[in-house]
C-alpha cells in the first residue's frame, strides 16, 4: 500500500490520473489502437492532422469516432512540420477541426533523418501559439536552457526527448532531464525515445511528470500487452520516485545483523 499520496498530473487546468500519454500512429487498425489505449490507462492520445483522401474515405470510420474526444483528451500534433508557420497553421486547423479545442502538441522538426527538433522555429511557433490562446505542450531537445525558455514563453508542458523519435533507445541523457526537472514549474514529460517498459520507469524515477510514447507500444509484437506493461512501468517508476531510492554504494552493506551470530 502506498503511504505517500501523489498529486494528480494537471495540464492546462485539467487533471489526469494517468501519467502516460500514447500515440495513434503505426497501429494495425483503429481497433488495436483502441485496445492499446484501454490497456495503457492513458487519458490523452495524440493525433496528426492530414488532408482527407478524396474519393477514398466513403463509409470509412474516422479515428475520432473510434476514440471519442469525450472520454479521452485528444492532443493534435504538428508532426511533419519543419517551419513555425506550418506548425501554427496546423494547430489552427486542429482547433477548428476539434471545435475550439486549444490543447496542442507542438513539434517543429529540423531534419528527416534524426527528427530532431528545430529549436529556433519551435520557440517562434510557441510564442505565436501562446499569444493566440493555445495551450502548448512542446516537444524539444533535452537542453535545460531551452526547456526553461519554453516554459517562460507560456507552454503548459515541456516535453524533452529521451532519444530520437521512434528510435527506442531509451533515456540517453538522464542528467539533462534532471537539470530540466530541477528548474521546471510546469509538467515535464519525456516525449520520444522510450523503447520498453524499463525506459518508461527510468523517466518516471527521475521525477518526470509523465511519458509520451507511440512506437514503443505500436511496434511491439503485442501492442496491447506492451500498453499494459507501460501502464505499470509508469506507475511503478512514479512510486519509486516518491518513495525515494536508497543511496548507491560502491561496496556491500549486509542486510542481516552481525550481532548474535553463533559461529
Amino acid at each position: 500500500m502506498a503511504t505517500k499520496t501523489d498529486k494528480a498530473l494537471e495540464i492546462a487546468g485539467k487533471t489526469y490520473q494517468s501519467r502516460l500519454i500514447i500515440g495513434s500512429g503505426k497501429y494495425q487498425d483503429f481497433e488495436q489502437n483502441k485496445d492499446a489505449l484501454e490497456a495503457s490507462g492513458a487519458e490523452m492520445i495524440t493525433v496528426a492532422i492530414r488532408r482527407v483522401n478524396l474519393g477514398q474515405d466513403k463509409g470509412e470510420p474516422s479515428l475520432l469516432e473510434v476514440i471519442s474526444p469525450e472520454d479521452t483528451t485528444i492532443l493534435p500534433n504538428t508532426a511533419g512540420c519543419y517551419t513555425a508557420d506550418d506548425a501554427v497553421r496546423t494547430c489552427r486547423m486542429a482547433r477548428e477541426l476539434l471545435g475550439g479545442h486549444s490543447l496542442v502538441k507542438l513539434e517543429v522538426l529540423g531534419d528527416e533523418k534524426t527528427l530532431y527538433p528545430n529549436v529556433t522555429e519551435t520557440l517562434s511557433a510557441a510564442e505565436t501559439l501562446v499569444e493566440d490562446g493555445f495551450h502548448v505542450m512542446v516537444y524539444t531537445s533535452d537542453d535545460p536552457l531551452i526547456a526553461k525558455r519554453l516554459e517562460e514563453i507560456g507552454c503548459v508542458a515541456v516535453m524533452p526527448l529521451g532519444a530520437p523519435i521512434g528510435s527506442g533507445l531509451g533515456i540517453r541523457n538522464p542528467y539533462n532531464i534532471r537539470m530540466i526537472l530541477e528548474n521546471a514549474t510546469v509538467p515535464i514529460i519525456v516525449d520520444a525515445g522510450v523503447g520498453t517498459a524499463s525506459d518508461a520507469s527510468i523517466a518516471m524515477e527521475l521525477g518526470c511528470d509523465g511519458v509520451l510514447m507511440n512506437t514503443a507500444i505500436a511496434e511491439a509484437q503485442d501492442p496491447v500487452l506492451m500498453a499494459s506493461a507501460m501502464k505499470k512501468a509508469v506507475e511503478s517508476g512514479r512510486e519509486a520516485y516518491l518513495a525515494g531510492r536508497m543511496p548507491r554504494r560502491l561496496y556491500a552493506s549486509a542486510s542481516s545483523p552481525i550481532d548474535g551470530t553463533f559461529f
Partner: peptide
C-alpha cells in the same frame, strides 16, 4: 481549398 481530418500519429 484544403480539407483536413485527424488521423493516427504520435
Amino acid at each position: 481549398i484544403e480539407i483536413v481530418q485527424a488521423i493516427g500519429g504520435g
